[in-house]
């Protein structure tokens, strides 16, 4: 077996150091080594989006990133979206808008939606649908997800 590699990275704003095998994905490292199980594995080949995290602010599917690539990067996972004890407006709007059913795609979708709203505070419906197109949801038909992202955008603008 190849020797393990030491990785220093920043996850949700905190310095984290871990040992991983070179073949392990970032998703495996997050879930099995660091213990952050909020990112989910739905396909392990980059097609479902349930493992979506922010990698230096960019949306990636963490199953397609090697854990060693996290060296020196900033990673944001679903566990880093809420602000302390307070839910992020996207999370709050998802609850009020019933934008989840089984909830397993929800972490990835909220992370992707946050990346979108950080970049565009007032996205069109079309743009929301485009940005979330790599996040499969099989329960909701996306309607309430799109509406909840719209509601969160409005709420965040009001708060400014």
């Amino acid at each position: 077996m190849p020797r393990k590699v030491q990785v220093q990275t920043k996850i949700n704003g905190e310095e984290v150091e871990f040992l991983c095998e070179p073949r392990q994905s970032l998703l495996e490292a997050l879930r099995d080594i660091v213990g952050l199980t909020g990112s989910k594995e739905g396909c392990n080949d980059g097609n479902c989006g349930a493992c979506t995290v922010l990698f230096d602010g960019r949306i990636v599917t963490s199953c397609l990133v090697l854990a060693v690539e996290a060296e020196g990067k900033q990673i944001t996972t679903i566990e880093g979206i809420a602000m302390g004890n307070e839910l992020h407006p996207i999370q709050q709007c998802f609850l009020e808008g019933a934008a989840l059913q089984c909830g397993v795609c929800t972490p990835g979708i909220i992370v992707a939606a946050k990346a979108l709203l950080d970049q565009d505070s007032n996205p069109s419906e079309e743009k929301i649908r485009l940005w979330l197109a790599n996040n499969l949801c099989r329960c909701t038909g996306y309607d309430k997800i799109v509406r909840s992202v719209q509601a969160a955008a409005e709420r965040m603008q009001e708060a400014r």
Partner: peptide, 21 residues
Amino acid sequence: TRPVRHDGADKVTGRALYGAD
């Protein structure tokens, strides 16, 4: 009525534990 679901906070924060977790 349309209350927020009881397991909602766990499911929007990644805390809910699914089988593989």
